[in-house]
Amino acid sequence: MTAAASASRLTRWRRRGGLSTLALAVPTLVVFGYFSWKPLLQGMVMSFQKWNFVSDPTWVGFSNFEYVLADPLLGTAVLNTLWFTLLAILFGFPLPILLAVAVSTLRGPSRRLASFLAYLPVIVPPVVAILLWKVFYDSSESGLFNRILALVGIGAQPWLNSAASAMPSIVLEATWAGAGTATLIYLAAITGVRPELYEAAELDGAGIVSRAWHVTLPALRTVIVIMLLLQLIGATQVFAEPFLFTGGGPQNATVTVLVLLYRYAFTAGDYGAATALGVLLALFLAALSAVYLLVTRRWSDS
């Protein structure tokens, strides 16, 4: 490396903030490095070990991965997780956007009241919310939801008690619990849309729906792209809902990847298998995110 080249590199470094940039990144590096990346790497090492936490761990190569991949329940868990993700995105992705656009057309106090009401479910602690919905989902005729359905002439539904309807029931609650946060984020982003754009579109003769489609949505592009990715990752790692609602039942219909992972770690005490499955899931999500960001890059940059 020549002196000139290194000097110009130094200049570039300085122009981008140099030391001060690095200093500003220190909290992130320390906190993530010490409390996130280090334990994560150590955990990944455990996927190649068998360890009872008493004696020294023994290295077992890929045998934990082989064990996990040979588990007949893994296929079920993957399919269930994909099914949940599909349903959760199908309902949980467009709903907050529509809700945010609709609420944004309200004015003054009524707008604040509507966004407050939409956010209320988020205030309920997740475990409380799930236990609450479990009471509502009582599948006898005296269950709350079944009573309401009876008022409009619909017979009692099995809700969580049937392999077919258990997952959709879980998705319904998850959508209810998660929509508020997303709605608020979209609302905040909509507030940033420049009013001149609406006025210009209106002068061009665009109707309300057309303005929403051609002005509001494009303005939300970057937010939508990142929100969808976060929802995808969150849905793939769904745990509390199936765990507390059904424990994976009936007939394993709601065993998700994380429920299976939980069973490895805490029912069987097999951290090797649990961390191996965790690593496999992480690799899948990393690949998914990479493809996703690549595919959406052009659209979100344009």
Binding site: P158, G248, G249, P250, Q251, R263, T267, A268
Partner: peptide
């Protein structure tokens, strides 16, 4: 041996006869 895992494998069987 593996009592908890044995029970875990039978939960869905019991659920199956009751829901299907």
């Amino acid at each position: 041996a593996n009592a908890q895992e044995l029970y875990a494998a039978l939960d869905p069987v019991v659920q199956a006869v009751l829901t299907d």
